[in-house]
Design a protein around this nucleic acid. Structure first.
Lengths: 343, 343
DNA sequence: GTGAAAGCGCTAACAG
DNA sequence: CTGTTAGCGCTTTCAC
C-alpha cells in the first residue's frame, strides 16, 4: 500500500456527487440519462447537488463505457467557402436538441487530409460521418466501410456511395443552366473555372454537353486548379476575353468567380448584361446584392445539411433506412446579369 | 460465470496488436508515444502489425487514463463570417504538427450558446480554450476560471482577461481610420453598423471620438442588431442618405456592409468616391476586388490565430508565459473608395 | 528496454 | 426505483 494514489484531474466526478447526495453513483448517472427511472424528489436533490458542485460529466469516460460518443464528424473541404458554412448550419439545425455533438473538420480540398481526419475522428470515437463529396483515397474508403458506422456523403450523388448520400446532380445543373442561356439566345459562350474539384468538373461537363448538343463550340473554356477567389474571377475573365473577344456570355463555375468577373467588367467598362452576360453557381448572398444581380444556379445547401443530419439520426436510432441516394435538386435563377427573355 | 461478456466495439485494440506482436500492450503504447524507448527492431515489427490490423488508437481511453486529451476548443461567433475563417486557419496553422486537435465551435454570437459550448467542450476534456471575445456570461467566466485550463481570448484586448489574450484595439482602429478620413478632407461623415457586438461598438466609439475631437457631428449614425450582410449594407445606406442627403462619407462597421453599400451606390448611380466615400473594416478579399476597391482597416486575423495557438502550446508544454495581453495592431488601407490625398 | 498491476470516470448487465 | 459488480482501452506507477 505504499503505491501513491494516481493524480486525478481534480474535477468533480459522479462519485463526488453520489457521496454528497448519499446514493450510489449509478443513480446519479441515471438521473442524468434516464431521469424517468429516478424518483422525483431524489432527482431534484441530485440536480441541486450537481449545480452546487459544478459537476460536468466526463464524456470520454462515458463514451468508453458505453461504446458510443454521441458525436458525429462533419467533414467539409473548406470553411472559407460560404457554400459550406450553410451546409454546416443545416447539419447543426438537423442535430439540434438531439444530444449529438457535431465535430467539424475541414480537409482543405485534399483527399490525404481527409483520410487523416477520418482516422482522427475515428480515434475520437465518433458515431457517424457526414462527408462532403464522394472522392476519397482508397485507404479512406476502406476505413470508412470497415468501421461499420453510418456514413452520409453530401453535396453530390456518388456512383457508388459508401452508405447514404444527399446531394444534387451538378452535371444536370450545368446542363440546365446552359440550356436556359441558349433559350435566351446566347450563342457564343465561354466558361471559367477554378479549384476544379469533382463537382466543378461535373458542372463543366454539363455546360459542354449542352453546347455540343446545340452544335456550338466549347473551346472558350479556361480553368485552373488554384483556389477560387474574386480576383481570380477577374483575371480569368480577362484572359478568356483576350483569346475570345467576341464572347457574349461567360459561365463561371461558382459565384465568387462570377462576382470577380463582374467587378472586372466594371473596371473595364464592359456593360453587363448588354455587352457580356455572366452567370455564377450556388446562389450565395452576393449574387442578389451586386449591381447587376447575378444569374446563378441555386443549390439547396442548407437543406442538404438538414437532410444529412436527419438521415444520420434515424440510422443512429436504429432505422435501417430505405433510399440510398437523395436528390435535392437545384433551381435556375435568371437575374440581371443575363439578358432578359426575348431580348 | 454465466455473466455475458460486455459487448465491445469490435475495433482493434492495443491488446490485439500486442498479442499479435507477442509483447505486452504497454510496449505498443510506448512505441507510439515514446518511440525512442523501444528498440528499433521491435518498433518496426509493431508498426507493421499496426498497419496490418488497421489499429486506430482510442483517444477517449487514452485521455481518460492520462487526464489530457490533446485537444483544444476554438470558439468563434460565426462560421459564415470570413473574418473567422481566417482566424481558424491561423489557429490550425499554429497547431499543425503539434499533435493537438482543434475542436471548433460556433456560438452564433450568443453568450448563452457560448456558455453551453464551454460546458460541452469541458465534458470532452479539452486541454485549453481559445475563445473569441471577452464578453461571457457570469457562469461561463466562473467555469473557465475554475477549470484551471489555459485560456486565450482573441480578437480584442479585454480589460480583465481570464488568462491570456491576443487581439487589437478596435476603438483605436476606428479612431485612426476616421482620423485618416478627416485628413483627406472629409467633414460630413456617417456610420452604418449591423450586429453591433462589443468589437463593433468599440469601432463606433472610435469613430465618435475622432469626430467629437474634430468638433464634427456624430449624428449620422445608423445601427441595427441584425446580422450583417450585403443587402443590409445597401438598405442601411439608403436609410441613412434619406436622413442625411449631404453626407460625403459613410463608414461601415465591416466590409460586408461596405460592399453592400457600394453595390447600392452603383444601383442608384451614386459615384464612389466622387459623390460619396465609403470605408469598410477588416480587409477581406472582396475589398480589393470591387470596383472601386474599398478603403478599410486591415486586421491581422490569421496572425491572431497563429499567435493564440502558439501561446496556447507554450502553456500546454509548461511555460507559464509572461505577457497577458498581446496587441497585434491594424493597418489603415486607403484605396479607391475614398478620395485621394490632397483631392 | 520491457512488463504487471492498478485505475482513470463512467455505464452495461444483472440483482433486488 | 436503487444498488453491485465488472470492465470499456488506455496510461501511470513501480518493478525488473
Amino acid at each position: 500500500m505504499t503505491r501513491r494514489t494516481r493524480r486525478t484531474s481534480g474535477r468533480v466526478t459522479l462519485d463526488d456527487v453520489a457521496r454528497r447526495v448519499g446514493v450510489s453513483k449509478i443513480t446519479i448517472s441515471r438521473a442524468l440519462r434516464e431521469p424517468w427511472r429516478v424518483s422525483e424528489g431524489l432527482r431534484q436533490r441530485i440536480h441541486a447537488v450537481i449545480d452546487e458542485l459544478g459537476y460536468i460529466p466526463n464524456r470520454q469516460a462515458g463514451a468508453l463505457a458505453s461504446a458510443r460518443s454521441r458525436s458525429i464528424a462533419l467533414l467539409v473541404p473548406s470553411l472559407s467557402n460560404a457554400v459550406f458554412s450553410e451546409v454546416i448550419r443545416g447539419v447543426d439545425e438537423g442535430f439540434a436538441g438531439s444530444g449529438y455533438q457535431v465535430l467539424l473538420g475541414h480537409t482543405s480540398y485534399s483527399r490525404e487530409e481527409e483520410a487523416h481526419l477520418i482516422d482522427t475522428y475515428l480515434s475520437f470515437g465518433v458515431d457517424g460521418f457526414i462527408i462532403s463529396g464522394s472522392q476519397h483515397t482508397d485507404s479512406a474508403r476502406q476505413r470508412l466501410s470497415r468501421c461499420g458506422l453510418p456514413i452520409c456523403e453530401i453535396m453530390e450523388l456518388p456512383e457508388s456511395p459508401l452508405d447514404m448520400a444527399v446531394g444534387l446532380d451538378h452535371e444536370a445543373a450545368g446542363h440546365a443552366l446552359t440550356g436556359a442561356l441558349l433559350e435566351l439566345g446566347y450563342r457564343r459562350l465561354g466558361f471559367i473555372g477554378a479549384r476544379m474539384d469533382y463537382r466543378a468538373r461535373r458542372r463543366l461537363e454539363g455546360w459542354q454537353r449542352a453546347l455540343t448538343e446545340a452544335g456550338l463550340s466549347t473551346a472558350a473554356c479556361l480553368t485552373t486548379e488554384s483556389p477560387s477567389d474574386y480576383r481570380l474571377g477577374g483575371q480569368l475573365l480577362g484572359e478568356l476575353l483576350e483569346q475570345y473577344p467576341a464572347l457574349e456570355m461567360v459561365c463561371c463555375v461558382n459565384d465568387d468567380l462570377a462576382a470577380g468577373a463582374l467587378f472586372e467588367c466594371q473596371r473595364r467598362g464592359i456593360r453587363v448584361p448588354d455587352q457580356l452576360g455572366l452567370t455564377g453557381y450556388n446562389g450565395l448572398d452576393i449574387t442578389e446584392a451586386t449591381t447587376p444581380t447575378l444569374s446563378t444556379v441555386i443549390t439547396p445547401r442548407r437543406r442538404i445539411g438538414v437532410a444529412a443530419a436527419s438521415r444520420m439520426l434515424s440510422r443512429l436510432e436504429g432505422d435501417q433506412g430505405t433510399e440510398v441516394l437523395q436528390d435535392l435538386g437545384f433551381e435556375i435563377a435568371l437575374r440581371e446579369s443575363t439578358r432578359p427573355a426575348g431580348g
